[in-house]
Amino acid sequence: MPTVLLNQVKAGDKLTRDVQTKLGGTLFYKGKVLMSREIEILQAFMVQSVVVETKEGSEEHQSAPPASSAKEEHASEPAAPATAFEQEYFNTVNLLKKVHRQYSPGQVFPILEIRKQLELLIGHIDEYSVLTFIPDVTDTYDYMFHNSVLSALTSYLLARWGGFKQRDWIPAALSGLFHDIGNLKVDRELLIKPGTLTASELEEIRQHTVLGYQLLKPVPAINEGVKLASLQHHERVDGSGYPLGMGGDQIHPYAKIVAIADTFHAMTLKRAYRIPMSPYLVLEEIQKESFGKLDPALVRIFIEKVTRFHNGTVVRLNDDRVGEIVFSDRNHLTRPWVSVNGTIVNLTTERQLYIKEIVKL
Rank of each mutant, 00 (worst) to 15 (best):
Y141I: 15
R335K: 03
R167V: 13
K185E: 14
S230E: 07
I114M: 15
L120I: 07
V51Q: 14
F178K: 04
L283R: 02
K227Y: 08
F90S: 09
L294H: 15
L158K: 01
E204I: 06
N331Q: 15
S240L: 12
P110Q: 11
Y254A: 09
A272Q: 10
G106L: 06
E357A: 08
T343Q: 08
T21F: 01
D13R: 06
W169A: 06
S104A: 12
L120M: 00
R271H: 14
S68D: 13
D262R: 01
Q287F: 09
R271G: 06
E59R: 09
S148M: 08
E324Y: 05
L347P: 03
D180C: 08
L120S: 11
N94S: 11
Y213N: 13
K356R: 07
V149N: 00
S200W: 08
S175H: 00
H146C: 12
H310S: 15
H332S: 12
T54K: 13
I260N: 07
P66S: 12
I257D: 03
M277D: 14
F309I: 06
G239Y: 06
R316L: 08
S36M: 10
H310K: 15
D249H: 05
V108Y: 04
R271E: 14
N341Y: 06
A44Q: 13
A80P: 07
E59M: 11
T313D: 01
L353A: 02
A272C: 10
V19S: 03
P279Y: 03
T26W: 00
I251S: 03
P65R: 02
E285Q: 14
H124I: 01
N183Y: 14
G24W: 12
V226S: 00
D139K: 12
L42R: 05
K217V: 09
T343I: 13
K165H: 13
G342Y: 03
S278W: 07
